[in-house]
Computed example of a mutant assay.
Amino acid sequence: MTLPVFGHTNPDTDAITSAIVYASLLSRLGVTAKAYRLGDLNNETSFVLKTAGVEVPDLLEALPEGTEVALVDHNESGQSISGLSGLKVTRVVDHHKLGDLSSKDPLYLRFEPVGCTGTILGKLYREHNLPIEGWEARLMLSAILSDTLHFRSPTTTDTDREMGVYLAQIAGVTDIKAYALEMFAAKSDLGDTPADKLLKLDYKVFPFGGKQYGLGVMETTNPGYALGRKAEILEAMKQEKAAKNLEGVFFSVVDILEETNQTFVLDDAHAEVIKGVFGADTQDNVADLGNRISRKKQIVPAFEKYFG
C-alpha cells in the first residue's frame, strides 16, 4: 500500500517540496510513499520544481475513509484535505503549533520550532545517516529560503541558517542570495492572475474567538502590483467572506525586500478589528502593520491574544 504524503491546501513552496522530499525519505526507509498536492502551485514553487528538474505532484481531492496518510507543514483539519477526520494520520512533520489533530492510535510526530519544515527534513536525513541527493537539497533549501524570506522573517532560527548553508553546498547553489532573489522574482511575476487567485496564493482560515477568519498573504518584491489591483482584491475578499460564511477576511501585502506589511481591510467593522489587534489605523482600506511580516509569529498570535 502506498502512503499518500501531502501539505496544506493553497500550498506554498514548503508544503509542496516537503511532501516530495518526505515521500522520498520514507521510500528510502522502506515505506512506500507518494507525494501529492492539495491545490495549484504558485509561480515560485513552479520555478523551484523546474529548476530542480522535479515533476509536479498529482492533485489529491479525496481519499477513502480509513486511508493511512502522512502530513507535512500542517496539522489542522481546516487546512487539510476534506474528510481528514475520517483518515488515519500515521505521520506528521511540521513547524507550526499543534492544531486540532487527534488520533486513536500512536503515530509518528516531529514538531520543531524552526522556520521551515524543510529544515526538519534535513535533520531527519542526517539522523538516519542518509545521503541527500542534489535535487532533494535544492528543494529543502528553496523551502527554507521561501518560508524565512531569505532568513529575514522573525521565524528564522540559527538551525535554519545552518541547514540552508549545508543544503546549498549539496545542491550546488554558490550564491544563496542570488538564488533567493530569483525565487522571489518568480513569485512576484503574477501578470494578469485573477483577483480570487491572488487572494488564495497563501491563504489559511483560523478560528479566533469561536469564529472563522481568512488570512491571505502575498509576499512580493513588487507591492505596487497588489496595491494597483486593490479594488479587485477587496471584491474577491468580500465574495470569499460571503461564500464561506467567514467572520472576516484580511489580505497582507508583504514587501520581502523592505520588510513591511500593508494589509487590505474590507470595511469599518474589519478596521475596528485591525485597530484592536494591532493599534493600526486604516486609510482607504489599507492598514500599515509595519514590520509584521510573519503570519505565523506576528499576525496569528496577535489575533489570538485579542480574541482571547
Rank of each mutant, 00 (worst) to 15 (best):
L198I: 12
F47S: 02
T159S: 07
N10P: 09
E247D: 14
M1A: 12
V93M: 01
M237R: 06
D202Y: 06
L145Y: 08
D268A: 15
N285E: 11
G30N: 10
K244F: 14
V54W: 10
T260L: 02
W135C: 12
I16M: 03
D196W: 09
I299W: 07
D268C: 06
E272T: 12
T155E: 05
I274Y: 04
K296W: 09
K123W: 11
T13E: 01
L199H: 09
Y22N: 08
D284E: 12
R229I: 04
Y203E: 00
P154H: 08
I256H: 03
L246K: 05
T17Q: 00
Y22H: 11
G191P: 12
V92P: 01
V114C: 01
S294M: 05
N245M: 14
R126E: 15
K88P: 05
D12M: 06
E55D: 15
T221F: 10
L25T: 11
P207N: 05
K88E: 13
L25G: 09
S103R: 02
F206Q: 01
K204Q: 07
A180R: 10
G308V: 13
R110Q: 12
A269C: 01
D284M: 02
P106N: 10
N10V: 03
G30H: 13
V165K: 11
V217Y: 07
D175L: 02
A35W: 03
R138E: 11
A185W: 06
T263H: 03
A231C: 02
M183K: 04
S77K: 14
D267R: 02
K34E: 15
K197Y: 09
E68D: 14
P57F: 01
Y306L: 11
E133I: 03
P4S: 03
K244A: 15
V54A: 06
M218E: 05
S27K: 08
S82I: 13
K275R: 15
S82N: 13
R28K: 15
Y22M: 13
S102A: 10
S294P: 02
A226D: 01
E55A: 14
H128M: 10
V72F: 06
K238E: 15
T9D: 00
I256M: 01
L246Y: 13
R126H: 14
I176E: 05
T67M: 05
T119Y: 00
D281G: 06
E65Q: 11
Y306N: 04
D12E: 09
F208R: 01
F184H: 07
D268H: 12
K238Y: 15
E127T: 04
E232A: 08
G216E: 04
D175R: 00
D196T: 12
K50R: 15
A35Y: 03
H74L: 10
R292F: 03
G308M: 13
H96P: 12
G224K: 05
F151T: 00
K211R: 13
A137W: 06
N43F: 12
T148H: 04
V253W: 10
A62N: 10
G224M: 08
P194R: 08
F151L: 00
K241R: 15
L257I: 14
T148I: 07
A226M: 10
V254T: 14
T263D: 09
L289E: 02
V205L: 05
A180K: 05
T174K: 15
I233H: 09
G66C: 02
G78Q: 08
G83K: 10
V54L: 07
A180L: 10
N291M: 02
S252W: 11
G7K: 00
Y166M: 12
D160I: 00
